[in-house]
Design a protein around this nucleic acid. Structure first.
Length: 556
RNA sequence: UGGGAUGUCGUCUAAUGGUAGGACAGCAGACUCUGGAUCUGUAUGUGGGGGUUCGACUCCUCCCAUCCCAACCA
């Protein structure tokens, strides 16, 4: 059943539309700071804002909140643009930068000073900190709090001109040093930083703080609903205060709970640590849930969208089960990924009653979920590869794949029966001798007899080699937000998160695939061609396995 | 401890005074040329105590737990 229930944000917006607030207009934005790359947690915020704009015939902006030149770079701006575009959110021509509003923000600050609502404080950082008080004790006023408007104006101008060193002065709002809300105790608006900005160069040496800047950015762009995460709840009174004092367009800030995923890191700081320490191969490592990592892994943007839909939206702290992401990926790929044959851990099979040197063409269905995907040809011959796992000499009762004396089907090809097991001197199985039933060609059962298993295979002479990279979870603990005391994320790295398989055998139809090509290897999972791949050395990433009830049984 | 928030199946999320529902995960079964997909069935939940009411996840009250705020970060 489709549910008509809406999340609390959509309820608020619908009420605003109904009552004509903002002339029933809806305008959202996503405001990343370009100091890292986007991950699946950001995808929730991006898609929330974008989808809401779509649903209510509104507008969506992409705006870089680039107010801290010490941490930000153009490199991240470009990466973020690329990732959000890939995700599917479309800001059309509305790509904005907070740094483009610096002049306007400066004017607003002057306005606040003139109104006696802001002052230049010449205490140093330690003094400001000491005078802020604690959560249970009020702060004390700065000795500079009563400076005249003229002096404040003069000092602020000179701050801009570069007459002072970093940290010598700050501009603060004059609110209430005794407020129970720490953020209202004369919050800082500007600091002096003689640092080159990636967009404004050396034009500015004063930079605005988040609380001062963010509401202005929203206001300037005419944002109606400014959606942000829960930790900004206590900032809302300040967001409102600035806009009220200035008397300018006043968006509504609404906070929601950010998404956490178990067994993963979704913190820019921790991801950066993994990248810098070389635990992963870069921001796009397929084990990372960055958007570039996900993309390289083969996760389609549509699967991320449907995952985000399923996760929902509320205000309670949450840790989503990774299995829900996997489900969303399989759900999408099952419908759209073409099926291919590939053997990751090859075991040679000789069909002893099949003529040597002969090859025939077998027809295979490209996608049983999509008739229009058509069929393709697979060469079949006397020597084949099957998956080593698909044979057991002494099989338990529930194992119904190939075993001595048993008949199984080779997908789309023949019923075969295993007659002989060939081993080397160490006892390792090197080869299986089987016979096939010519009447079962195409994998059919002319007399209606059943086989329990159908195996994937490739013709040995026609197979192409490839490297296949298998991934497992990178992190070994569920909740990476609450690490045990004195431990770092580095203490919880899964040493087996990457397994590289060489000399995998692929069906010949895969010969010319290009990076990002995605398909299902039958019975194994969904795989995607890695950017490291080239025609001489194909490289595939496993996006996700198929659901595997046998693996589950085997564990018992 | 001052202020701000949040507690519903294992997990995520609905129900705004009227049968606590859905999804994932789990379990059982059917079907199957992927042990896939699909289909069917099934167990498990309102943080706690009082109160209001014919009736409370919902309203009142007290308590408990958890998260956020004392960066010249966002």
């Amino acid at each position: 059943m489709e549910s008509n229930s809406k999340d609390f944000i959509r309820n608020i917006i619908e009420e605003d539309i109904r009552t004509g607030k903002y002339n029933s207009r809806v305008h959202t934005r996503f405001p990343p700071e370009p100091n890292g790359v986007m991950h699946i947690g950001h995808a929730k915020a991006i898609l929330l804002n974008y989808n809401i704009a779509q649903e209510y015939q509104g507008i969506f902006n992409l705006r870089f909140d680039d107010t801290n030149p010490e941490k930000e770079s153009e490199e991240f701006v470009n990466a973020i643009i690329e990732d959000i575009k890939w995700l599917g959110a479309d800001w059309q021509d509305r790509l904005f930068f907070a740094s483009d509003y610096f002049e306007q923000m400066y004017e607003y600050a002057v306005q606040l000073i003139k109104a006696g609502k802001a002052y230049v404080d010449s205490q140093n950082a330690d003094e400001i900190k000491a005078n802020r008080g604690t959560v249970t004790t009020p702060g004390t006023d700065s000795p500079f709090r009563q400076r005249s408007i003229e002096e404040n104006l003069d000092l602020f101008q000179r701050m801009r001109k570069g007459e002072f060193a970093d940290g010598e002065h700050v501009l603060r709002a004059k609110i209430d040093m005794a407020s129970p809300n720490m953020l209202m105790r004369d919050p800082l608006m500007y600091r002096i930083r003689h640092t080159e900005h990636h967009r404004t160069g050396n034009k500015w040496c004063i930079y605005p703080f988040y609380d001062w800047a963010h509401g202005l950015e929203d206001s300037i762009e005419g944002i109606t609903h400014s959606l942000c995460s829960l930790e900004f709840e206590a900032h809302r009174p300040l967001y409102n205060w600035y806009l009220e004092q200035l008397g300018i367009f006043h968006p509504t800030q609404i906070e929601f709970a950010r998404m956490n995923l178990n067994y993963t890191v979704l913190s820019k700081r921790k991801i950066l640590e993994l990248v810098e320490k070389g635990i992963v191969c870069g921001w796009d490592d397929p084990r990372l849930l960055t958007l570039r990592g996900l993309r390289r892994r083969g996760v389609p943007a549509q699967a991320i969208q449907s995952f985000i839909d399923k996760v929902g939206l509320a205000k309670a702290y949450n840790v989503v089960d990774y299995a829900l992401l996997e489900y969303s990926v399989r759900e999408y790929l099952n419908k759209y990924a073409p099926r291919m044959m590939a053997v990751l851990d090859p075991l040679k099979v000789v069909i002893t009653n099949y003529p040597e040197g002969e090859t025939e063409e077998i027809t295979a269905v490209n996608n049983p979920e999509d008739e229009t995907a058509g069929t393709r040809i697979l060469p079949f011959s006397r020597e084949l590869y099957i998956e080593r796992d698909d044979f057991m000499e002494d099989a338990p009762r529930k194992f119904f794949r190939l075993t001595p004396g048993r008949e199984v089907r080779l997908r789309y090809a023949y019923f075969i029966t295993c007659n002989d097991v060939i081993k080397d001197e160490t006892g390792r199985i090197t080869e299986l001798h089987c016979t096939c039933d010519p009447m079962s060609r195409g994998g059919k059962s002319p007399d209606g007899r059943k086989v329990k298993a159908t195996l994937h295979w490739v013709s040995a002479a026609h197979a192409i080699n490839a490297e296949v990279r298998l991934y497992d979870r990178l992190i070994t603990i569920e909740d990476t937000n609450n690490l045990p005391e004195n431990e770092s994320i580095l203490d919880f790295i899964n040493p087996d998160s990457l397994q590289i398989k060489q000399n995998c055998k692929l069906e010949m139809n895969l010969k010319n695939v290009q990076p990002s090509y995605s398909c299902q290897f039958e019975r194994l999972g969904y795989f995607c061609v890695d950017p490291d791949s080239n025609p001489e050395n194909l490289v595939f990433n496993r996006t996700v396995t198929l659901r595997d009830t046998w693996a589950k049984l085997k564990e018992k």
